[in-house]
């Protein structure tokens, strides 16, 4: 599967999962920072094993990785779920509109002018209609 054709229904779950991971990482970082501020003297609990973290201990690698991964996921989810861009040149845009609306485009007003009427098709249509009326009348 081509990666750039990721279906847009993946966008919501991806963004949601990313937000979940991000909030978890945020809470983990908060817990980690409070762990550093608690000293054994101020705590009422007597720690069985004394551990000492350096006061400048940086964020653990797994929290950093989780944060970065979640940011990448949310970005991808937002971009994939965004509205489609529209072509800016008139010919590309008009062609796209015409293809999507089944032949009715912004130039319809020009094509409906009298000079472009298919007179044979109209005549045949009228003849068919008259024949239909006749057969209905006889029945």
């Amino acid at each position: 599967m081509n990666l750039t054709n990721m279906p847009s229904y993946l966008s919501r779950p991806l963004t949601f999962l990313g937000l979940l991971l991000l909030s978890h990482a945020c809470y983990s970082a908060y817990e980690h920072s409070t762990l550093l501020t608690i000293s054994p003297q101020s705590s009422s609990l007597k720690p069985t094993a004394t551990f000492s973290l350096p006061p400048s201990a940086s964020l653990p690698l797994d929290i950093s990785l989780e944060t970065i991964l979640s940011v990448i996921m949310i970005c991808a989810g937002l971009v994939v779920g965004a509205e489609e861009l529209k072509p800016i040149t008139w010919r590309a845009w008009a062609g796209k509109v015409e293809r999507e609306n089944g032949g009715v485009g912004p130039f319809q007003g020009l094509e409906d002018r009298l000079g472009f009427v298919d007179i044979r098709a109209k005549r045949k249509e009228f003849a068919d209609w008259v024949r239909d009326q006749d057969s209905d009348g006889k029945r």
Binding site: L22, V71, I74, C75, L78, V79, A82, E83, L85, K86, P87, I88, T89, W90, W93
Partner: peptide
């Protein structure tokens, strides 16, 4: 010719994504 409406639409899409991801 350029379709002004499409230009505005594209700019709006990009700026929406930018403002969301910036706070992220």
């Amino acid at each position: 010719p350029i379709v002004q409406e499409s230009v505005q639409h594209n700019t709006r899409v990009v700026s929406n994504i930018r403002s969301l991801t910036a706070s992220l």
